Amino acid sequence: MTDIPEADRRGDAPHPRMTDRLFGQETAEAAFLDAWNTGRLHHGWLLTGARGIGKATLAWRIARFLLTDPPARADTLDPVPDHPALPRIRALSDPGVMLLRRPWDDKTKKLKTQITVDEVRRLGGFFAMSSGGRRVVIVDSADALNPSAANAILKLLEEPPAQATLLLISHQPARLLPTIRSRCRVLRLSPLPLPALEQAVEQAGGHAAAASALAEGSVGAALELADGGAETYEALIDLFAKPALDKARARAMADACTGKAGAARLDATLNAIERLLHRTARAGLLGPPADAPEAETRTLTRLAPHDAAARAWAKLAQDVGDRAAHARAVNVDPSAIVWDALAQIDGLARRI
């Protein structure tokens, strides 16, 4: 079973539970410590922010803190050194912690596209076996909960077991049930400043030079860009550099995402599309980034020349993300997912 991929781990980078240091998120850590020190520890926490900025790393820091007999007043989330629970937490064998993530499908030999209600139902046995002690549940990510699983989590938030802390990681909290959001305290994490980003990239096994401005403060984005994502984004910028879409090139980009070999390409392509849409929307309001390459500046200027365009691109970013997520959940052909997104971008570009 050791060769089964972990849905909440990026490539060869260390899993967040193995990452001891968190860079650039002192404000979020201080907010949690304040709740602990004042005796106002909420049972449900929603950790929000862009992908790759440390939400999962913070969740595991909190779990280690809570499960290693912390003092009543603490100055740091660092756990008690050499506590016997630490190796068990890293091995996912400690009785006080449960991780919910997209499970492996033995039939398809792939990770499922959603967290199913069967995964959430495992919490019944977890709480029964660990009664009497502090328990921590990490959901990575809550965005992947299917409707039944989301309702099961909501019920748990409404009637939490004693000494239970639920840590829900969300990249796009607006897509969660409003009732889930209302029953959680929000910890908002910010994009990392460049020095912290460089440190975090090195800790994840990359080179500090990968911490480019295009990563926008995200370790995950920096690693992805260094691993071919930058070339994918450049190809996307070039594809929309001219008013007339080169349909043959667009079709080739979509077809490259099919099959087992295309699974990683699909993720990189959809991430590049998301990056293009968000940067285009911001460019309509603020102009292209000052450090953007000349080719990107020209494309962003053409696509978003005014405020109205910015609003249209922001809405399209939401629509494309929702459509892609739904399509992946029902196993639509990957090339069709990418082609649909490219066609929507082309359609809006023609109307601007």
Rank of each mutant, 00 (worst) to 15 (best):
D3P: 00
P5S: 07
P5D: 05
E6V: 15
D8C: 09
H15D: 12
T19D: 00
T19A: 11
F23A: 02
L41N: 03
L41E: 11
H42D: 08
L46A: 09
R51S: 14
R51T: 11
R51F: 03
R61K: 15
R64I: 03
L67S: 09
T68N: 07
A72Y: 00
D75C: 01
V80N: 04
H83Q: 10
L86P: 08
P87N: 09
P87G: 05
I89F: 03
R90G: 12
P95Y: 11
R101F: 00
K109S: 14
K112C: 04
I115H: 05
T116M: 04
V120G: 09
R121L: 02
R122Y: 00
A128M: 08
M129K: 15
S130C: 07
V137L: 10
I138L: 08
S141P: 15
S141Y: 08
D143T: 12
A144E: 15
P147L: 03
A149F: 01
N151K: 10
A152T: 14
I153F: 01
L154Q: 06
L156E: 01
L157Y: 05
L157M: 13
A162G: 04
A162C: 00
Q163S: 05
L166N: 08
L167F: 12
L167W: 12
L168Y: 08
Q172E: 14
R175E: 14
L176A: 06
L187V: 01
L187C: 01
R188W: 00
L192V: 10
P195W: 12
A196P: 00
L197F: 09
V201C: 02
G205H: 10
A222G: 11
L223D: 09
A226M: 13
G228F: 07
G228S: 12
G229L: 13
A230M: 12
Y233F: 15
I237A: 09
L239K: 07
M253V: 03
G262L: 04
D267Q: 11
N271C: 06
R275D: 09
H278S: 13
H278F: 06
T280E: 02
A281S: 14
A281I: 09
R282C: 00
L285Y: 11
D291N: 06
D291P: 00
E296A: 06
L300C: 08
R302F: 05
R302Y: 03
L303A: 10
D307K: 14
K315A: 15
A317T: 08
D319L: 12
V320W: 03
A325P: 02
H326G: 07
A327V: 00
V330K: 11
D340W: 01
A341L: 01
A343I: 04
Q344G: 12
R350V: 06
